Simulated scan of single mutants.
Amino acid sequence: MVRLVLEAARTAGVSPDELNRLPGVGVLGRQGIRVPTMLLTRVWEVSSAVFAEAGGAPRVAQLWTPGRFHVWDYVIKSSADLGEAFDLAARHLPAITDPDSAFIVRRNAAGRLTVATRPVPTFGRVGALIGEFVLGLLLQQAGAALGRPVTPVAITVAGEPPRSHAHLVETFGTRDIQFDAPVSSITFAPADATAPLPGADPALAAIVRDHAVHSISNARPILGWLDKVHAEIADSFADGPPSLDRVARRMTMSSRTFQRRLHDEGTSWREEVEKVREAEATRLLRDTGLTIDAVAARVGFSDVRALRRAFHRWYGRTPADFRRQPSAK
C-alpha cells in the first residue's frame, strides 16, 4: 500500500528528494518486510497538498488494479459475498500494510454492511485524505469483486471537510457524506452485501488464506527512527507527562541533537507526543473498559481536563462522546 501511495505522490509531482528523505523508503524494494504505518502517514503528510490539487485521495485509490495487492486481492475475490470478503480482508490486512491500519466490519439489523477504519494518528485534512483514500480503495474492491459498479448508501470521513466535496460525491455516487466523524467508513446496501460474488471459489479461498497467513507470519517489521521515538514516548507515559530530555537519553542522544534530528525529520517533539497520545488514548477508549480518568493518566496527562481538551482538538467531541459512538468500537 505504501508503494501505491508513493507512486501516486511521484506521479502528482511531489519532490523525489522530499520523498526519499522519509524514514523507511529505502527498504521498500525488499520483499517480505512489514512497513510501519507511520511511513504511510508521512507520505500522506508531505503529499496532501499535491493530492488535493490533483483531484483528492480517491484519485490515488484509482491507481489500484485487481491483483496489485497480490494475495489480499484474491482473499476478497474468492469469498462468498462482500460481508465475508471484508471480514477476511480485515483479518489479513497485515499482508499489505502494518497491523495498526486495521479496519472494523459490522452489520446492522437491516442488513447494511459497514467497513470502518481505525483513526489515523495525524491531523486536519491529512487524516481526512487518508480516510477518503481507504474508502475509495474499498469501493473499488467491492466493484471488482461483484463485477459491476457499486454505490454505497453512506460515507463518513474522520477529518476536516474540503472546501468542496463535489469530487467525493462523484467518486462515491452519494451525497450522504458526513465529515468530522469518529472514523472513516463506507456502508453498503444489503443487496450488495449479500450478493454472491462471481469469483467465489471455496477451494481457492482456502489456499489464498493459508498463503496470506504465511506471508503475515514471515514478514519482518522494519522500524524507522521515528517509530523508535514513538515507542520511547509511549513507554515514558508510566512516569507522567513525557520528558524530551528523558526520551533523548533513552535514544542515546543529547537533547539538542535529538531536537535537531526531529527537525531533520520534518517534525517536532510536541507533534510526536501529540500523535502518540492521540493513538494511545483512542485505542484505550475503543478497546478497553478503563475509566476516562485512567485513560488520561495512562497517556501522561496531568488530569482528565487535559484529555478532554485534547480530544476536542482531535475529534471535536469529548472522550465520553467518542466512546459512545458505535463506529468507534
Rank of each mutant, 00 (worst) to 15 (best):
T122M: 02
V153M: 02
V126Y: 05
T114N: 03
L93M: 04
F172R: 00
R10Y: 15
W44G: 03
A102N: 03
S185A: 15
D81T: 10
L129R: 02
D287P: 10
A8G: 12
T11G: 14
G300L: 03
K228P: 07
R30C: 13
A205K: 12
A203Y: 09
R3M: 14
P16Y: 15
L284W: 08
G111S: 04
V71M: 06
T174D: 00
R107L: 08
P94L: 08
W314P: 05
T156D: 10
A296S: 12
L204A: 13
L82P: 15
F103W: 08
F51T: 04
P198D: 09
V126M: 01
V5D: 01
D287L: 12
V2P: 08
R106C: 08
R209M: 12
E132Y: 03
N108V: 09
E84N: 06
A294D: 10
T156S: 12
R261N: 13
S236W: 13
R107D: 00
R148G: 07
D235M: 11
R42W: 09
R91P: 01
A212S: 01
D303E: 10
A49M: 06
E170G: 07
P198V: 11
F322I: 10
W44H: 11
L244T: 12
D87P: 00
A142T: 06
E45N: 10
A144I: 11
I33G: 14
P16Q: 11
F51D: 03
E18K: 15
P221S: 04
T267N: 06
T252M: 11
L19T: 12
T291V: 00
M253I: 01
S48I: 10
S302T: 12
A158Y: 07
I186V: 06
T257H: 14
R21Q: 14
W269Q: 11
P119I: 07
R250T: 15
